[in-house]
């Protein structure tokens, strides 16, 4: 299995868009402003295709918030943002006057929270729609050179296929593109797809 059917993709996109809607609502409560968050595209990549160009990541550094979840299938969910932009968004959210270059550890906790909100929203939407129960670890934030982060992802999964969600987030005038990467083993992906097929056939 190297690709998803149109209907499977459509179902996944809708699941994650509902998650994105939930996350946008939570974020707008925090920033007291309108937040736009959408998942325009869900794609299955060969792990060999994952690089900065393919994901059009033009930043030298990448911030990643990771949660590991378990349930009927296990996966690591990682939210990838270009570090500079993400920090700007967090800065705006904090209403802080400090320069971006001074972004400190406790502000990175805020990055963790931003990622946590989006990841939880996507996971909970998946759990609700597919009628399953997922447990999750707490989020961990890390930052590194773009290529190194991507290489690490490929290395860790050691799987031929990686599920990638494209994410657009806008708060006030700032716009941020990110990626939500699901690292699943082949057998976990198979189980996820069987849940989706069950969901579709139940309509």
């Amino acid at each position: 299995m190297n690709s998803l059917s149109d209907l499977q993709l459509d179902a996944l996109t809708e699941i994650f868009n509902i998650g994105a809607g939930r996350a946008a609502s939570s974020l707008s409560e925090i920033v007291n402003d309108e937040v736009r968050l959408s998942v325009p595209r869900v794609q299955l990549y060969q792990s060999s295709e994952i690089n900065a160009d393919a994901l059009s990541l033009d930043s030298p550094r990448l911030g990643a918030v990771k949660q590991s979840f378990s349930g009927p299938f296990n996966a690591d969910a990682m939210l990838l943002f270009t570090e500079e932009r993400a920090m700007k968004i967090v800065h705006d959210m904090m209403g802080s006057q400090v320069g971006i270059e001074d972004m400190a550890e406790y502000e990175q906790e805020a990055m963790c929270e931003l990622g946590n909100i989006i990841l939880n929203a996507c996971l909970s939407s998946m759990a609700d729609m597919l009628d399953l129960t997922l447990d999750s670890s707490l989020p961990v934030y890390s930052v590194g050179a773009t290529d190194a982060v991507l290489r690490q992802i490929i290395l860790e999964t050691n799987q031929p296929l990686i599920l990638v969600l494209h994410i657009n987030l806008s708060i006030e005038k700032r716009h941020l593109q990110g990626y939500l990467v699901f690292l699943l083993s082949s057998s976990s992906l198979q189980k996820l797809l069987s849940h989706i097929d069950r969901f579709i056939s139940g309509i």
Partner: peptide
């Protein structure tokens, strides 16, 4: 605080852990 109540409700409903960072809250 409203954000705290929302967080508590979400944890109970979705069973997923939540962080309320000092920077934002």
């Amino acid at each position: 605080a409203a954000s705290f109540k929302t967080a508590l409700r979400n944890v109970l409903q979705h069973k997923l852990p939540i962080i309320l960072s000092n920077a934002l809250h």
